[in-house]
Amino acid sequence: MFSWRADELVVHSIGSAAEQPRTVLAGLDDDKICRRSLYMDGTVYLLNVNKATVLAFDVDDETITSIDLPLPGERVADGNQGSYVISELMEMSGRVCVATLEDVDKRLIAVWLLTADRRCERRCLFHNAAVSFWDYNHDVAGVWDCGGVLLIFMQAHDESCCIFLYDDATEGVYMLNAPPNATPERMDYRICWGYKPTLVSPANIVGELSQDEKQLHDLAVDLLAALKPVNDMEKRKGQDATLTTVCFMEFLAGIMRKLPSKLHHGIGKLDRFY
């Protein structure tokens, strides 16, 4: 997970030069804060990896609530709580979601949802049957509720990955290997949880370029033309990464569209065909 070391959380107001930054939470003790935040209904959620807590920042009141993730007692005692958090903040069914390890042998995985009153409710608990696949560096990258079946996508730091299907009714778990040569690298995509399109143009927020800035822009365009071959090469690399990401996400979406009715009729054995 990508994170920052932080001693405090500070709020900046955009568009008001007179206001000074305000500290809303101090005493973080150089904690690791995941860079990906999640915004829902007037609250910004952040993940404190070191303390295994979710920080809920109320945008209007500028207050912060710390929500502890449920971890077994022996893990709290070892002083390394954050090592049992194996996802960044995600969204599922309009609620904040996070995954943790639930057993000392690192083979039980729990998915938690935050309730309206900010309690942690366990959505599922399953055993990772792929013992040879598992290692410490695997994270849960995405969880989707498909009407009684959870699709759980896990990806390793070495880019290997697999897909788990969790059946609510039976608590059974099916594991699919990801298609070969069709899985995007972790750095090539970000799942935009809670994204909602807007009709507000960026220019309305940042403003138009001044005359001097336009002249500087024109100068930069002229001088940087010499770098066009290199830029074109990078663009092609980006296009390849985009194609891989789009194809893989459409593959996942195709599985979701067939759940839950097709779970027991072939989806769990899909990887035998590739």
Results as ranks from 00 to 15, higher is better:
M1Q: 09
F2T: 14
W4H: 12
R5W: 09
H12S: 05
S13R: 05
G15D: 06
A17I: 03
A17N: 09
A18C: 05
A18K: 07
Q20V: 07
A26H: 03
G27H: 01
D29H: 07
K32Y: 01
M40L: 11
G42Y: 09
Y45H: 06
L46V: 03
L46M: 14
L47N: 08
D60K: 11
D60Y: 07
D61C: 14
I67N: 10
L69Y: 09
L71M: 12
P72V: 14
P72Y: 12
D78T: 13
Q81M: 13
V85L: 14
V85N: 13
M90N: 08
M90E: 10
E91V: 15
M92W: 15
M92F: 14
S93I: 15
V98T: 08
A99T: 15
A99I: 12
D105I: 14
L108C: 04
V111Y: 03
V111H: 00
W112C: 07
L113A: 04
T115K: 06
T115Q: 03
A116Q: 05
D117K: 13
D117G: 05
R119W: 06
E121L: 08
C124A: 10
L125N: 01
F126W: 10
H127E: 06
N128F: 06
A129V: 09
S132G: 14
S132V: 11
F133C: 10
W134E: 07
H138R: 12
D145H: 09
D145T: 06
D145S: 10
G147C: 04
G147A: 08
M154R: 02
D158R: 10
F164E: 01
F164M: 05
F164S: 01
L165N: 00
L165R: 00
Y166A: 06
D167E: 11
Y174W: 05
M175T: 10
A178D: 04
A178F: 03
A178K: 01
P179C: 04
N181M: 13
T183R: 03
P184H: 00
W193D: 02
K196F: 00
K196D: 06
T198Y: 00
V200Q: 00
S201Q: 04
V206S: 01
G207W: 01
E208Q: 07
S210C: 00
S210F: 02
D212C: 02
Q215S: 07
H217L: 10
H217N: 12
L219I: 12
V221M: 11
A226E: 14
A226V: 11
L227S: 11
L227Y: 03
P229W: 01
P229I: 00
D232V: 08
M233D: 09
K235E: 08
K237P: 00
D240L: 06
D240F: 10
T242W: 08
T242E: 05
T242L: 13
L243N: 11
T245I: 07
V246Q: 08
E250P: 07
F251M: 05
A253I: 12
L259E: 06
S261F: 14
K262C: 11
K262Q: 14
L263G: 02
H265S: 14
R272M: 15
F273Y: 13
